[in-house]
């Protein structure tokens, strides 16, 4: 019996791909229309229709036309709510999806941008065992988190968008399968040695002689008098002190794929990822040399993202 049901379900899925998980990926934007919105009564809807039947039989039995009219009215209102459930999704558009950055194993933040020309309330989106409920009015953005496992390109899963608006009696749903992939960065290893530095690195890095004036701050007891900004203090009630930023002399890390020859490639990637993360956290400059190409020294989030993406895309 179960086997038969499963076969039947598989057949149905093949025949009606839009209805099911077999829906093919499609490019954005995706607009929901009547061909891909499905409606079934919810469990509550079925229970409520049983109640309506009881009311109908009661009204008929007592030949009470006022009660019958009321029951008909309630029934018709429930039937109309089916159309409203459809309208909650019809014409809804998934415009684009922006992916954040995440290393493998961490949830990846996706920003879905929906558009609807009129207000849609109580739209729900199932993504990764989580249901998000939100209204859509004009352009509405929704943040969801996608679990990740491996580095590299990850296709977006099929998302179920559904609604039981307005009374919870009917459930309208549709599958969204955006043809879009997100890049998952490699997971850095947990611990390990610092990168091997070329012998001349120390010499090339001289301590920074100059002290750069970073900001003015309030005088604190114990500040050296020569640091007081007299001119600026004259315009204020309190003494102002020049705050000096003394950058740590840090050497540039030249990270090289070939320097880790003794490991397999995933271990190398994990180690390089850790080094990249540490370098970025310490504010160092770093460069990356990979079989697929080199990235010259730099720092900052954009540089970091470029390096991590290059790592993620290694075969």
């Amino acid at each position: 019996m179960n086997g038969l049901l499963r076969k039947l379900a598989q057949h149905a899925e093949r025949r009606l791909p839009a209805l099911t998980r077999l829906r093919q990926p499609e490019p954005l934007p995706i607009e929901l229309d009547r061909r891909r919105i499905y409606i079934v009564p919810s469990a509550f809807g079925i229970a409520f229709s049983v109640l309506l039947m009881v009311m109908l039989v009661g009204a008929l039995n007592y030949a009470n036309n006022a009660a019958l009219l009321l029951t008909c009215m309630l029934g018709a209102a429930c039937a109309s709510s089916m159309l409203l459930a459809f309208r909650a999704l019809d014409g809804l558009r998934l415009r684009d999806i922006r992916a954040g950055h995440a290393t493998a194993g961490e949830p990846l933040e996706l920003t879905l941008s929906f558009f609807a020309s009129r207000l849609r309330e109580a739209v729900r989106l199932d993504c990764a065992d989580e249901t998000h409920a939100f209204p859509v009015d004009g352009v509405t953005e929704l943040k969801v988190y996608l679990p990740t496992v491996w580095r590299g390109w990850q296709e977006l899963p099929r998302l179920r968008i559904w609604s039981t608006w307005p009374l919870g009696l009917f459930r309208a749903w549709s599958w969204l399968h955006p043809q879009q992939s997100v890049l998952v960065w490699p997971r850095p290893e947990v611990g390990g040695p610092p990168p091997f530095l070329p012998a001349d690195a120390q010499e090339r890095l001289r301590p920074q002689p100059g002290e750069e004036l970073a900001a003015l701050r309030d005088y604190r007891r114990g500040d050296a008098p020569r640091h007081i900004a007299w001119k600026a203090s004259a315009r204020h009630h309190d003494l102002l002190v020049k705050d000096f930023d003394r950058p740590e002399p840090r050497e540039t890390w030249l990270l090289d794929w070939d320097a880790l020859r003794s490991f397999d490639s995933e271990t190398r990637i994990a180690r390089l990822a850790r080094w990249l993360g540490e370098a970025e956290a310490q504010g160092r400059r770093y460069s990356l040399k990979l079989p697929s190409g080199s990235i010259t020294a730099g720092c900052g989030p954009t540089h970091y993202a470029r390096c991590m993406s290059a790592l993620a895309l290694l075969p």
Partner: peptide
């Protein structure tokens, strides 16, 4: 109606 989450 008010039982539906995600409404105005």
């Amino acid at each position: 109606r008010s039982l539906e989450p995600g409404r105005r």
